[in-house]
Amino acid sequence: MSIDAVERRLTCIVCPIGCIVTVRVSGDRLEASGYLCSRGLDYARQEALDPRRIAITVVKVRYGDIPVVSVKTDRPIPRRFVREVAKLAAYIEAEAPIELGQILLEDILGTGANLVATRPVRRIE
């Protein structure tokens, strides 16, 4: 274990027990302790090396029966991009009608995920 190893404590969310897993990452090596089952180890590895989340936010809508449409990334993206998605969404505007699941932005921030509408919006003139 090198001296620049980073140690972190993570709460496993796979099951209700919520094990506190201590993770040490050094280069591409990972050591973990405190988990009760292998799912905890998998979770800790993913969280420590490549945490991912579904990003959610809203996008402004023109001619909609409501002024914003809720959106999400259609797959988990690296966690560090989640805030960027909300920010990017401030600079786009969709036009009603919008269908549930309609893609509003493809391959968002190069993550391979699309930004999709999570509700339909009716058009009003």
Partner: peptide, 13 residues
């Protein structure tokens, strides 16, 4: 403001 007023201003972080 509108829901995007703060992120548009870039006031976070």
């Amino acid at each position: 403001g509108d829901v995007k007023s703060l992120v548009k201003g870039g006031s976070y972080d």
